[in-house]
């Protein structure tokens, strides 16, 4: 009897006894940010939110700038026309409304701030142009095209070559960004974001960093960034005049 009771008593100690905490969760009940991120996002945004083909999410400047609703909306609706898929179930995705919220909230809190080396300067975050442009239509007037080209020359050409064709002229090599297929697959918003935050994982400087830029380079303003995006957008459309403007 005693032995029997002891045996039953040890019931809890068997390694094989399933632990309710390990109970498998149905896909749509997973609420852990890390799991959700690993299952859904790392394929494009990289294992740790950087060094993936898509723009890094593990980027303090980016996370500080992007408004909560925008972040949520991007994950929910995706960016049509780009490879960024819509994740919300009602948009044909695989995640519940709740899960989209968890990811959006988790992105902002998940990566501890010690990675901020390059942007540790709080001023960079504070002075950064807003994530969303205030201009409603990005259209270059013929006069502005020259202005934008000059700006491009100063801020980008050292790495991406004067007309954006890419090259290894500078100490850092950026590839072609005047390629129409590339431009067709990236949104204006992402272009703006890249110009603001750079790609710290691949060596592209942010809006204020002096790397590969002239001595007297001043941080780009929101309006200047609008101009640059408009310039790139005109290359996307293949406007002959604009395309050659940088030469």
């Amino acid at each position: 009897m005693v032995a029997c009771a002891a045996f039953v008593g040890c019931n809890d100690d068997f390694p094989g006894k399933p632990n309710p905490a390990d109970r498998p969760l149905p896909q749509n009940e997973i609420t852990d940010f890390a799991t959700l991120f690993a299952q859904n996002c790392t394929g494009c945004h990289g294992a740790d939110g950087e060094l993936g083909p898509a723009p890094p999410l593990n980027d303090p400047l980016f996370l500080a700038l992007i408004p909560d609703e925008t972040l949520h909306a991007v994950i929910r609706d995706g960016r049509p026309g780009t490879p960024m898929p819509a994740f919300a179930a009602e948009r044909g995705g695989t995640l519940s409304t709740e899960q989209v919220k968890i990811i959006a909230a988790g992105l902002k809190s998940h990566w501890p701030a010690d990675k901020t080396e390059e942007v540790s300067d709080a001023a960079i975050v504070a002075d950064a142009p807003p994530y969303l442009s205030s201009a409603t239509i990005l259209q270059l007037t013929p006069g502005a095209t020259d202005q934008a080209s000059t700006l491009f020359e100063r801020a980008c050409a050292e790495c991406h070559s004067p007309n954006g064709a890419g090259g290894e002229t500078g100490y850092a090599s950026g590839g072609a960004i005047n390629d129409r297929a590339f431009l067709a697959l990236i949104s204006d918003q992402a272009l703006r974001r890249i110009i603001i935050t750079g790609r710290h994982d691949l060596g592209m400087p942010n809006y204020a960093a002096p790397d590969g830029r002239p001595e007297d380079f001043k941080p780009l303003t929101s309006a200047e960034i609008d101009e640059l995006v408009a310039l790139l957008a005109s290359w996307r459309r293949g406007d002959a005049a604009a395309g050659d403007a940088g030469k």
Binding site: G52, P53, A54, T82, P83, G175, L185
Partner: peptide
């Protein structure tokens, strides 16, 4: 990779 190739990977 170049920007185009990065998009290709995505």
């Amino acid at each position: 990779r170049t920007p185009l190739e990065l998009q290709g990977a995505a």
